[in-house]
Nucleic acid binder design. Structure first.
Length: 481
RNA sequence: GGUCCCAUAGACUAACGGUUAGGUCACCACCCUUUCAAGGUGGCUGUACGGGUUCAAAUCCCGUUGGGAUCACCA
């Protein structure tokens, strides 16, 4: 049987990094097995509709390099792929469940439910809908139920969970899981607005879409017994389940907005490469037993297996993400990086050619972790000198340097500004003037960049060019002496 | 609190009964060096605890402790 998996987010307005990992694992699993990966939008909660959220989700997923075979945009044989457009389907299966005595009508109001909750809480009993005392088709009787339905009284459809026994299901990452049926609630399947809850919609769609493997976050583990029961009640084969370990905050709680950025868009906007984010997130909860860390999407596809998914949650530690981003920064071609950075440069009022930008990026890439940092780091390569770092100047400059540096300036004036000649000239000059190479270089650094920190000076001068470099040296000489 | 899940260093992880417990990030030191990085070398820190099973346990079993998830007409 060929593999069919799905990523089924609810459109909340952004893509959570945990969602990115779930989507990624589904995608990797599908590609690894030559299967199909589906995007399905779970928007059955009308109270939480966010305009344009589904499009944003698709856009971000595509940015990350995750492509779906079927979905709202690409269509497919099992559409529509948006749950709110599948409305009638859920009512039909809710009716089936009713006929099979696997579900029932309930008429309780919110107040009545609250009262029951309070009663149970006071009695120290675990919360569970008590179908023997509440207002539903069992306690009300057939005639009253029919009457209420006829007059369109507010009602929901609940699933009928066995009162005793055990429910068990297999999980590909955790093995067999068994829970006492008496601890499973009579979940609402169809809300009073006739929309399904997640539990109903989810299993109906997964079945109808031929989903073979349900790969989702661990937070769904507690409700999986309900899903298993529903598949059984409808006489459907259960898909294989794989519950992924959670992504965690530094304090080990479920990764949340409160403790930092959780949206993929946040990381994208902060300048992380999609390759780095994907690579990083792939290794949180899964590891191919290799002693390497850098994997392309293709390499991830080739090595991904569900068997290697971990059970324990993983802290989302951005320190390693920073390092990984730096690795990709070193891997990419300067010209590609320049093209990527150009828009931001323009936005910051920096007008420069792709070629020059590429050379500057190559100059500083080892010293930064994110591409956009190249701009502030090497600001002096794009704009006139903004001044000199006082502390650095105080440390480097002494009046005794005036004479030799003036000499050096004249020598530089007659020198080709290439790495080789500049290196030879500065080294020779250091020797004959008796100055340490470090002093010569740092003084040039002060005069040309104004900063204490930067790339190799001869490289910097070569790229900046003779004209600009000499302008700065002479200006510094005039200002310092 | 009920139910379920989980447990190798500060973080991510390798190990599928036999290894001096391996790798990566971070951290520290040294080398390189023109500052800062990068790179190289080395180092620090770990099988939560207690019982079993076994010739042999990080690994299997039980318990304890700790952590987490979940318990809506949200997904």
């Amino acid at each position: 049987m060929s593999v069919r998996v799905r990523f089924a987010p609810s459109p909340t307005g952004y893509l959570h990094v945990g969602g990115l990992r779930t989507a990624l694992y589904n995608y990797l699993f599908a590609k690894r097995h030559g299967g199909v990966c589906i995007l399905r939008i779970e928007d059955t909660d009308r109270t939480r509709l966010v305009e344009g959220a589904a499009d944003a989700l698709s856009h971000t997923l595509r940015w990350a390099g995750i492509e779906f075979d079927e979905g709202p945009e690409q269509g497919g044989a099992c559409g529509p792929y948006v749950q709110s457009e599948r409305f009638d389907l859920y009512r039909k299966y809710a009716s089936d469940l009713l006929e099979r005595d696997a579900a029932y009508y309930a008429f309780d109001t919110a107040e009545e439910l609250d009262a029951m909750r309070k009663r149970m809480q006071d009695a120290g009993i675990a919360w569970r809908y008590d179908r023997t005392t509440m207002r539903n088709q069992y306690t009300l009787g057939e005639a009253e139920t029919k009457r209420l339905l006829a007059e369109n009284a507010p009602r929901v459809i609940r699933m009928k969970v066995p009162l005793s026994g055990e429910i068990r299901f297999d999980d590909l990452v955790r093995g067999t899981i068994t829970v006492p049926a008496r601890d499973v609630d009579d979940q609402i399947l169809l809300k009073s607005d006739d929309f399904p809850t997640y539990h109903l919609a989810n299993i109906v769609d997964d079945h109808l879409m031929g989903i073979t493997h349900v790969i989702r976050g661990e937070e769904w583990l507690p409700s999986t017994p309900k899903h298993a029961l529903l598949y059984d009640a409808l006489g459907w084969e259960r898909p294989k389940f794989a519950h992924l370990p959670l992504l965690l905050n530094p304090d080990k709680t479920k990764l949340s907005k409160r403790q930092g950025d959780v949206a993929v868009e946040d990381y994208r906007d902060k300048g992380y490469f999609k390759e780095a984010l994907v690579n990083f997130v792939a290794l949180l909860g899964w590891n191919p037993s290799a002693t390497r860390e850098i994997f392309s999407m293709q390499e991830l596809i080739e090595s991904f297996t569900l068997e290697k998914v971990n059970k324990a949650g993983a802290v989302f530690d951005t320190q390693k993400l920073d390092w990984m981003n730096g690795e990709y920064l070193k891997l990419k071609s300067p010209s590609a990086l320049a093209a990527e950075l150009q828009p931001l440069a323009k936005q910051q009022g920096i007008e420069t050619s792709d070629e020059y930008l590429a050379r500057v990026i190559e100059l500083v890439r080892d010293r930064i972790n994110k591409l956009h940092e190249a701009l502030p780091f090497a600001e002096y390569m794009f704009k006139p000198l903004q001044g000199y770092e006082e502390e650095f100047k105080a440390k480097i400059w002494t009046p005794e340097l005036a004479a030799p540096l003036t000499t050096l300036a004249t020598k530089l004036q007659d020198c080709d500004f290439t790495e080789a000649t500049l290196t030879a000239l500065t080294k020779d000059f250091a020797k004959e003037s008796g100055l340490k190479t470090g002093v010569v270089m740092n003084t040039l650094r002060l005069m040309i960049t104004g900063r204490a920190v930067g790339a190799s000076m001869v490289h910097t001068m070569e790229i900046l060019g003779k004209e600009e470099s000499m302008k700065r040296v002479n200006a510094a000489l005039a200002a310092f002496v």
